[in-house]
Design a protein around this nucleic acid. Structure first.
Length: 365
DNA sequence: GAGGCGTGGTC
DNA sequence: TGACCAAGCCT
């Protein structure tokens, strides 16, 4: 037996969202499907505070879905650099092109059509449909999983298939008949500001009375943490070939870590010096000095990466550099490029590489 | 269906 | 300091 409608989970969440929720985020209050879509993609696995500056810069450079569709992929990656999960940027670009070509620059309105576009899954499709078109559809992101796992006392890692199926069913069953925007936003606001992973503020929660986790004092245990494996380790050597004004970068393959970004040419850990000599020869350079930098150790979520950087000061032989090869995944851009040192800050570089380069270049000059 | 994929914040 | 995770999706 459901409680009377005015006291339902959805009704109290909607009321709470209107008085206590977030209303001033840069993508709110527009109804612009392009902005809503862009924000939803950026917000996948990424916190609001991180997204906001990227969202503003992105919108300033690509004001419409058509403008985004017409931009070269590298321009998109440059604006995305530092945000992570770069497949999102490639899918975003493809999605814009499909919306421009197949829908005349207007996003489709149904969750099914939206979910058929690159980078848009079930939850993101629902969020766009709700916020842009007022559709009645359920989302299930990290916030909602946490809220529901606690409220219903659901055991088991929410990412596992059986638990996720259950959560989807609950999310669908709780949907109100109206006010979908406030309800959907309220779920995420509650998860982000009250029903936080650590130190939840239960005294501010509008649905506390029925919350199983609260009643049993199990907020700390729910949701059940992910079962963890030991992180694998990877080693790589990166070659920094530079002269007074420029440095050599290489486009990474479209798939895998840092896919599609620029980075330093890589070589075998043990053969870095020979590789640097070969690289210099192929570019008509002579290496004047080289320095092996202390090993850099990055802890990613999914593995550990140990990097050695062999920094080579080079001098040109013939004044003209060897032709760079094209890259099958990026036909509009070169596989290897010489980048002006001054442009390191705005290039599409992974964050650790950009930081390392900035330090080395500053030291060298 | 399980594994891969970034970065920055929190404790 | 290292473990853990955040407005998930694709392969």
């Amino acid at each position: 037996m459901n409680p009377p409608k005015e006291f339902s989970f959805a009704a109290r969440l909607i009321a709470w969202q209107k008085s206590q929720g977030r209303h001033d985020l840069p993508w709110q209050g527009t109804g612009d499907a392009y902005r809503i879509w862009l924000s939803e993609i950026m917000l996948q696995q990424t916190q609001v505070a991180t997204v906001i500056p990227y969202f503003r810069r992105f919108l300033a450079e690509f004001p419409t879905v058509t403008a985004l569709a017409q931009a070269p992929l590298n321009a998109v990656l440059e604006r995305w650099a530092g945000l992570g999960y770069y497949a999102r940027a490639r899918h975003l670009h493809r999605c814009a092109q499909q919306v421009a070509a197949a829908y005349g620059g207007h996003f489709p309105e149904t969750p099914a059509e939206l979910a058929a576009l690159p980078g848009i899954g079930r939850s993101t499709a629902a969020a766009i449909a709700v916020f842009a078109f007022g559709t009645r559809a359920a989302i299930l992101d990290g916030n909602v999983k946490r809220v529901l796992a606690r409220y219903f006392g659901i055991e088991g890692f929410p990412g596992s298939a059986p638990v996720e199926r259950r959560l989807w069913a609950l999310a669908e069953s709780l949907l109100p008949d109206a006010d979908l925007e406030a309800y959907t936003q309220g779920l995420m606001d509650l998860g982000a500001t009250v029903c936080r992973r650590s130190r939840p503020v239960c005294e501010n929660c509008p649905v506390r009375p029925e919350c199983v986790a609260f009643r049993k004092g199990r907020q700390v245990d729910l949701p059940t943490p992910r079962p963890r494996k030991a992180l694998p380790e990877r080693k790589t050597a990166m070659l920094l070939l530079m002269d007074e004004h420029t440095l050599l970068l290489e486009r990474r393959p479209a798939s895998g870590i840092w896919g599609g970004l620029l980075s330093l040419p890589e070589a075998d850990w043990d053969a870095a010096n020979q590789a640097a000599d070969a690289l210099a020869a192929s570019h008509g350079c002579r290496i004047l000095a080289r320095a092996l930098l202390p090993e850099v150790r990055h802890a990613f979520t999914h593995f550990r990466l140990n990097i050695r950087i062999l920094s080579c000061r080079a001098e040109h032989f013939h004044g003209e550099r060897a032709a760079s090869e094209g890259h099958k995944d990026f036909p509009d851009r070169l596989h290897q490029i010489w980048l002006p040192r001054a442009d390191v800050a705005k290039a599409a570089l992974p964050a650790p590489v950009r930081r390392a380069l900035a330090a080395i270049v500053a030291e060298d000059s």
